[in-house]
Measured scan of single mutants.
Amino acid sequence: KWEEIAERLREEFNINPEEAREAVEKAGGNEEEARRIVKK
Results as ranks from 00 to 15, higher is better:
Ile5Arg: 02
Glu11Gly: 09
Glu12Phe: 08
Phe13Gln: 03
Phe13Lys: 01
Ala34Trp: 00
Arg8Val: 03
Lys40Pro: 08
Glu31Thr: 03
Asn30Met: 06
Glu31His: 08
Arg35Thr: 04
Ala6Glu: 11
Asn16Leu: 13
Asn30Pro: 00
Glu22Ser: 13
Ala20Val: 03
Ile5Asp: 02
Lys26Cys: 07
Arg36His: 08
Gly29Ile: 00
Arg21Val: 09
Glu3Pro: 08
Glu33Asn: 05
Glu22Asp: 13
Glu22Met: 14
Glu32Asn: 05
Gly28Asp: 12
Arg36Glu: 15
Leu9Ala: 00
Glu19Met: 13
Glu19Thr: 09
Phe13Ala: 03
Lys1Asp: 13
Lys1Ile: 11
Glu25His: 13
Glu18Leu: 11
Glu7Ser: 10
Arg10Ala: 14
Ala27Arg: 01
Glu3Gly: 09
Trp2Met: 07
Lys39Glu: 14
Glu11Pro: 01
Val38Tyr: 04
Glu25Phe: 12
Arg10Leu: 11
Lys26Phe: 08
Glu3Ala: 12
Glu3Gln: 12
Gly29Met: 03
Glu25Val: 13
Asn14His: 08
Phe13Trp: 05
Glu22Gln: 14
Val38Leu: 15
Glu19Val: 13
Arg35Phe: 08
Gly28Ser: 11
Ile37Met: 09
Glu25Ala: 14
Glu4Ala: 09
Lys26Trp: 03
Glu19Asn: 05
Gly29Glu: 02
Glu19Ala: 12
Glu32Ser: 09
Ile5Ser: 03
Leu9Met: 04
Glu18Gln: 11
Phe13Glu: 03
Lys40Trp: 10
Glu12Asn: 04
Ala27Leu: 01
Asn30Ile: 09
Pro17Cys: 11
Lys1Ser: 14
Ile15Ser: 03
Asn14Pro: 05
Arg36Leu: 14
Gly28Phe: 15
Arg8Asn: 04
Glu32Trp: 07
Glu18Ser: 12
Asn30Val: 09
Arg8Lys: 10
Glu31Val: 05
Glu19His: 09
Ala34Met: 01
Phe13Tyr: 10
Ala27Phe: 01
Ile5Met: 14
Glu12Arg: 03
Lys39Met: 15
Glu7Phe: 11
Trp2Asp: 05
Leu9Cys: 00
Pro17Val: 14
Asn16Asp: 14
Ala34Phe: 00
Pro17Arg: 12
Glu31Met: 09
Ala34Arg: 00
Glu25Arg: 14
Lys1Arg: 10
